[in-house]
Design a protein around this nucleic acid. Structure first.
Lengths: 190, 190
DNA sequence: TTTGTTAGTATCGAGGCGATACTATAAACC
DNA sequence: GGTTTATAGTATCGCCTCGATACTAACAAA
C-alpha cells in the first residue's frame, strides 16, 4: 500500500531516539549531536580522529563540526592535540570523563529496553537489512562508509596477528583493526 | 560482536536522511522539523490535525511545536482555523502550496534511490522489522502510536463500506480510515 | 616562489528547542 | 449556580545547531 513506508518508519524511529538522547543528555548540557560526536571519536581509529573526519561522519559543514568540538572541549569531554607530522591536523580523543558520560548515555535506555524485547532472529535480520540500506545509501550519496577497518578492501592479513593497511602501508594492531576508519571502502561485491 | 549495532545503524541512517532533508529543504527555507510537521498534517485525520497532536508526534514541547507551526503559517504552507465545537482547539491543514512542497521534497531523492536498489523481499522484511521496533519503542516509552485508523482496536466495521470509531462513536469515511490518528491503539496481541 | 589545496577556526543570522509564564476555553466538582 | 482544575495554545527568553562566509596556517605542486 504505502509506497515509502520504510522512509516514514526510519524517520519516526530516528526522531524518537533523537528525542530520547536529547532528554538524557540535557542534564549534562549535551545535545544529540554532541553525543554522536563523542560516540564517533570513541570508535575512530588513528586515521579518523580528527575534526575533518567528524565533519564527514555527521554530514555537516566543517564550521559546525568545529563548534561542536569546541563545546565538548570546554566541557572537558575531549582533548585536542596537534599532530606532529602534519601541523594543520588536530587529533581528538576522549577524556576519561568523556568516556564515562558516553558509556552512561549511549545507547539510551529506550533502545536497550526495545532491543531486549526483540528475539535474536528478528534483531539479526533487522541489522542485516539496515546494514545494506546504509551501504547503498552511502554510495548513492558519494559519502564515505566509515566502516570497521577489518572489513576494508585495503585491509591486509599478514599473519596470525599481523595486519597492515594497504593504503598507507602501515602495520595495524588488532585492537585498531576493530575501529572505524574514514578511508574505509567496502570489498567490491561479487 | 557489537552489542548495539542496531542502534548505531538507526542513528547513522537517521542522520543521513536528516542531513539530506535539510539540504533539500534549504532552498525553501525549511528545516527538517518543518517537513516532518508538514508530513504529519498531510496524513492526520480529523482527530489529529491539531498543534497538540503534532507536539506528541514530534516528541517536543508544545511551545516548540507552536513555533514550528508559526513558521509554516508565515510561509503559507498551512492554514489554521478555529474549531467550532471546542474553541480552544486549532485545526491545521496544508495549503495547496504546502502540499506541493511536501510532495516535491518527501521522501527525499536519496531514499527513493536507495529503496530502488533493494529487492522487494528485503524491503518488506525491513519494513516489518522496523514496524515492530517502532511499536515496541512507543509502548516502552508510553508514547502514542499514531497508527492508521483502520488498524486501531477502536475501529468498527459495520458494513461493506461503513465504518465507525468505537471511541468517539462517530462514523468514518473510507478515506479517513487510512489516515493516522492520535488516539490509535494497537489491537492487543494474541 | 607562487599558486593551489587542505585543516581548522571565527563570526553572523535564522531557527530549534526546553522552560517558564501566560490566556482562554472547557470540564468536573461541590 | 460557582469554584477549581485541566486542557489547547501562544509568547518570550536563553542556549545551542547549522550553513554561509571569511579568514589563518600549513602543506603540496608548479
Amino acid at each position: 500500500m504505502e509506497k515509502h513506508q520504510g522512509y516514514e518508519l526510519l524517520e519516526r524511529i530516528g526522531g524518537l531516539l533523537r528525542a530520547e538522547l536529547r532528554k538524557r543528555g540535557a542534564e549534562y548540557g549535551l545535545q544529540p549531536t554532541h553525543l554522536h560526536a563523542l560516540g564517533f571519536f570513541a570508535q575512530a581509529n588513528r586515521y579518523s580522529n580528527t575534526p575533518a573526519a567528524l565533519t564527514e561522519y555527521l554530514g555537516v559543514t566543517k564550521g559546525t563540526a568545529s563548534q561542536t568540538l569546541l563545546v565538548l572541549e570546554n566541557l572537558d569531554l575531549v582533548k585536542k592535540t596537534e599532530d606532529a607530522q602534519d601541523r594543520r591536523v588536530v587529533r581528538v580523543e576522549l577524556t576519561r570523563r568523556g568516556q564515562a558520560i558516553l558509556a552512561a548515555l549511549v545507547p539510551p535506555e529506550l533502545w536497550v529496553a526495545t532491543s531486549a524485547k526483540l528475539n535474536k532472529r528478528e534483531l539479526d535480520e533487522l541489522v542485516r537489512g539496515l546494514e545494506k540500506v546504509l551501504r547503498v545509501m552511502q554510495q548513492a550519496n558519494g559519502a564515505r562508509s566509515f566502516g570497521v577497518c577489518r572489513t576494508c578492501r585495503h585491509f591486509l592479513r599478514e599473519g596470525a596477528n599481523k595486519f597492515r593497511c594497504g593504503l598507507t602501508q602501515e602495520p595495524l594492531k588488532a585492537a585498531e583493526s576493530r575501529k572505524i576508519c574514514r578511508e574505509h571502502e567496502a570489498v567490491p561485491a561479487e
